[in-house]
Structures are given as structure tokens and as C-alpha cells.
């Protein structure tokens, strides 16, 4: 370790590895009820994880949730950016994942044709 700047740069690099344990950043929530899994939620989840890895977005949290009740529109995938409403996408296919991450997660543009719901305040 030569300088304090070296250390700080290293910290920046390593910080992402433990981000999962801190409450911050954008959240992606995938419905993982039995029905959702039957509709292909696992595949969507894998696609999300792959895409996040490719883009090195290691500060994005991926969570799961149970059945929301809107089984008709599964797979359901929610995106919550900090201080923004919770957006629910329906009928998500693995092929849609790249677009959701590029447009919404990274650039904050909601993909209107996939949206099924919007919750203003996420507690």
C-alpha cells in the first residue's frame, strides 16, 4: 500500500462486494410463489443475475417475494429506484430482462408497455 489514495481506490472497488448487506441502491423484486415459478420466475431471476453481472451493477439488490395474487400476469418483476415509486412489470420473459435493466434500472426510464402497476410510496 503506497498512498492513502491507493487505499481509497481499493475500497471503492471492494465496496460493491458487501453492498448486499447494506440498505441502499436500487431493488429488483421478483415474485417467487409456486405459480410464479411455474410461469418461469427462476429463468427470469437467472437472466437478471446474469445481466447484473455483465454490467457489474453490484449495488443492485435482488429480492424475492411470495405470490402477489396477480397470477394471470406472471412472471412479475418490480423495480424500485431510490426515492422513486415501485413499478411492477408483468408477463416478464427472460428476453425482456436486458431492456428492463438497461432502460429502467440504469437510466430510470419506465418501460410503459410492460407495466402493470405503480405504487407511489414504498414503505
Amino acid at each position: 500500500m503506497k498512498t492513502l489514495e491507493d487505499l481509497k481506490a481499493l475500497r471503492e472497488k471492494l465496496k460493491g462486494d458487501i453492498k448486499v448487506r447494506q440498505k441502499q441502491g436500487t431493488k429488483i423484486i421478483i415474485g417467487m410463489g409456486t405459480c410464479c415459478i411455474a410461469a418461469g420466475a427462476r429463468e427470469v431471476m437467472s437472466a437478471v443475475l446474469d445481466e447484473l453481472a455483465v454490467r457489474k451493477l453490484n449495488d443492485v439488490q435482488v429480492q424475492q417475494t411470495g405470490c402477489i395474487g396477480m397470477c394471470e400476469k406472471e412472471v412479475l418483476l418490480d423495480v424500485i429506484r431510490p426515492d422513486e415509486p415501485r413499478i411492477t412489470y408483468g408477463n416478464v420473459k427472460p428476453a425482456d430482462v436486458k431492456r428492463i435493466i438497461a432502460d429502467h434500472v440504469v437510466n430510470g426510464r419506465i418501460i410503459e408497455d410492460l407495466v402493470v402497476g405503480k405504487i407511489e410510496q414504498e414503505g
Partner: peptide, 25 residues
């Protein structure tokens, strides 16, 4: 909250910055 056997995790939470600050500044 960190793995004590990995120095990387200690650095990720700001470890050794106190030493760095003391020694250089």
C-alpha cells in the same frame, strides 16, 4: 457483518483509512 478472515471486507468498510490518514496527513 464482515468476514474477519478477509482483509478485503475490512477495507470495504473503511478499514486502515485511520492508519493511512495518520501516517500521511
Amino acid at each position: 457483518t464482515i468476514n474477519p478472515e478477509q482483509i478485503e471486507e475490512y477495507i470495504a468498510v473503511g478499514g486502515y483509512e485511520g492508519l493511512g490518514k495518520a501516517l500521511t496527513l
